[in-house]
Design a protein around this nucleic acid. Structure first.
Length: 304
DNA sequence: AATCCGTCCAACCGCTCTTTT
DNA sequence: GAAAAGAGCGGTTGGACGGAT
């Protein structure tokens, strides 16, 4: 189970690869291709299991591999992709040409350690909260949902994301109460200011992975109460309810912040915060929407 | 100079998913 | 349809390395 037949062989070598082994593998694959990995070691004259050969090739030897430090753009991309897809390293890697899942995973793990260590020196927030604030960017998650809507519309599919798509049905979406942010420092625990975040969004929306060239939402507040860790909201696409104009009764806010009437225009979700359950009084501008099929209630607050 | 300690990263392990028989 | 084999993925480990003491 799990163990490949090739790995059961007695004379399988383990540990670091020697330059000679690398040379043999490169020579074999560049001339024959890999085809069936379990056959590669024998044909290449290696005392390794096929799995090990595959890993060595994919993570280290293949010619399009990109080595060296991650650029700032790559780092931001990783952070934002991770906020959407979680620990799906292979998926994240597919959006970073030349980078491997292993490399990204290693980078992320060391990055997490740094973040936790750094945040432990700041008494106003727990490490988890710091990580939470610095990693997850609600703007991009909302962008993801909107893009998924667009995708669905363009492909004329039923509103259920395809398995393996970057916007998985399980992708969490959650919002932070920006009103609490005004009492916080203007930069979050990772030192990122709101202007920085806006720039992140600018960069991301012009990035290939988002496909459509969508103008960024810029006034979506990101700061949260450092003493409160909001619950994760499963805002899978099926639970989102598209509102029609006139359904809202929030007065002036309606003028300032359009309701989600057209998923094709991301400006329409500027200033929207969404929750899966009521956390105290959200104020006059709160609205509730209920998914008719699941009866799940979502609370939305508009930020003036 | 020797030792300790933390970080990085290549590689392994175990599991799931997909394909083949 | 079931079983086996193969492929791929994510979590974890352990060795190499560099900086601090």
């Amino acid at each position: 189970m799990g163990q490949h037949s090739c790995c059961n062989q007695q004379k399988v070598k383990r540990g670091l690869w020697s330059p000679e082994e690398d040379e043999k593998l490169i020579k074999y694959i560049t001339t024959h291709g890999y085809g069936c990995w379990s056959e590669v070691p024998e044909k290449a004259g290696l005392q390794r299991c096929g799995k090990s050969c595959r890993l060595r090739w994919i993570n280290y030897l293949r010619p399009d591999i990109r080595r060296g430090r991650f650029s700032a753009e790559e780092e931001k991309l990783i952070i934002n992709l991770h906020a959407i897809v979680g620990n799906r390293w292979a998926h994240i890697a597919s959006h970073l040409p030349g980078r491997t899942d292993n490399e990204i995973k290693n980078y992320w793990n060391s990055w997490i350690k740094k973040k936790i260590k750094k945040s432990s020196t700041q008494p106003s927030a727990t490490p988890a909260q710091d990580l939470f604030q610095s990693v997850f960017n609600p703007i991009d998650q909302l962008d993801a949902i909107v893009n998924q809507k667009l995708d669905i519309a363009q492909q004329n599919l039923t509103p259920k994301p395809a398995s393996g798509s970057i916007f998985l049905s399980q992708s969490p979406f959650f919002g932070f109460d920006a009103s609490l942010g005004s009492s916080c420092d203007s930069s979050n625990a990772s030192g990122q200011t709101r202007d920085d975040l806006a720039q992140d969004v600018q960069a991301l929306t012009s990035c290939k992975i988002w496909g459509n060239s969508i103008p960024p939402a810029t006034n979506f507040a990101s700061a949260i109460d450092p003493n409160y860790l909001p619950p994760l909201v499963d805002m899978s696409i099926g639970n989102l309810v598209t509102m029609e104009e006139g359904e809202m009764s929030v007065g002036d806010c309606y003028e300032k912040h359009q309701v989600v009437t057209d998923w094709g225009d991301p400006h329409n979700y500027n200033g929207l915060l969404m929750w899966d359950q009521m956390q105290g009084d959200l104020g006059e501008e709160e609205i509730q929407i209920q998914d008719a099929s699941t009866l799940d209630t979502t609370y939305i607050k508009l930020i003036p």
